[in-house]
Amino acid sequence: MERNAKLAGETVGPVETDAETPRRRSAGGRVKSGQIREMLEQEIVTGERLAGERLDEQAVALRFGVSRTPVREAINQLASAGLVELIPNRGAFVRETGLAELVEMFEVMAEMEGMAGRLAARRIAAPARARLQAAHLACENAAAREAPDDYYYENERFHQAIYDACGNGFLAAEARRLHQRLKAFRRLQLRVPHRMHQSLVEHRRIVAAIEVGDGATAEAELKSHIMVQGERFADLVASLTPKVS
């Protein structure tokens, strides 16, 4: 079952409690649809909201103190990510994501990121190099602060910088699309003990390979960075129970 002994993703951090909801607000203190989406997606992937459960727009709006418009936007984003199913005349329902489906998506993600890294090593231009270095430094700083939520968002920028540097717009767009679909599951990755600091070590190897133009190593390092095996895989699956079966 080698296929089922792997899972991918860079993920981060503890799920926020209602007392912390939402963690990030706009400058004016208003809750945005993206923030609502983050909270709902974490509740879905951690099993707080079970497959088949209906998402009541009015109840969610009351919880966040907003109108139904940003809630509807958040639910539509979750539907695009495959976490929610929209049923005409019935509403939005949590969709079950099976382990086999996750493995398949993460295998494709690893291949895409590996290819982006290989091309970036050959094609990276000075502005893209500066963005990659800045994103890497931000990850270093977040890890030094032991701030997994901050690390997660900086990690997103790190991977986006690699997509930007690859010089293939189609690949970059598809990688972003799949990254967005898998972000909730990737975020859980840092629940695995010591994962944030191990991720940072892997980032250093990826940057070093891209810096010297070693496409083969950059590709291999990124694939390994995305894939999770052995005990880390078992720990991640346990964190998803009972959501993933």
Score class of each variant (00 low, 15 high):
residue 213 G to W: 05
residue 190 L to M: 15
residue 177 R to G: 05
residue 176 R to I: 06
residue 227 M to W: 14
residue 226 I to R: 09
residue 234 A to G: 01
residue 240 L to T: 03
residue 234 A to V: 07
residue 176 R to L: 05
residue 186 R to V: 07
residue 203 H to F: 04
residue 199 S to R: 03
residue 195 R to C: 11
residue 238 A to W: 10
residue 189 Q to H: 11
residue 179 H to D: 06
residue 195 R to S: 12
residue 213 G to L: 01
residue 233 F to I: 06
residue 193 P to F: 13
residue 212 V to R: 05
residue 183 K to M: 02
residue 205 R to G: 00
residue 228 V to I: 09
residue 184 A to G: 04
residue 227 M to K: 15
residue 238 A to I: 14
residue 189 Q to C: 07
residue 224 S to Q: 07
residue 178 L to V: 01
residue 219 E to G: 04
residue 224 S to E: 02
residue 238 A to Y: 10
residue 222 L to N: 06
residue 205 R to N: 04
residue 241 T to P: 07
residue 215 G to S: 03
residue 216 A to R: 04
residue 179 H to Q: 15
residue 217 T to H: 02
residue 185 F to P: 07
residue 194 H to V: 15
residue 190 L to Q: 14
residue 182 L to I: 09
residue 196 M to A: 12
residue 199 S to W: 09
residue 175 A to K: 02
residue 231 E to R: 07
residue 179 H to Y: 15
residue 215 G to N: 08
residue 198 Q to V: 15
residue 221 E to C: 05
residue 194 H to R: 15
residue 212 V to K: 07
residue 227 M to F: 08
residue 205 R to Q: 05
residue 187 R to S: 10
residue 205 R to A: 06
residue 200 L to M: 11
residue 210 I to V: 04
residue 217 T to Q: 05
residue 234 A to T: 09
residue 183 K to Y: 07
residue 204 R to Y: 00
residue 238 A to P: 15
residue 193 P to Y: 13
residue 221 E to I: 01
residue 209 A to D: 01
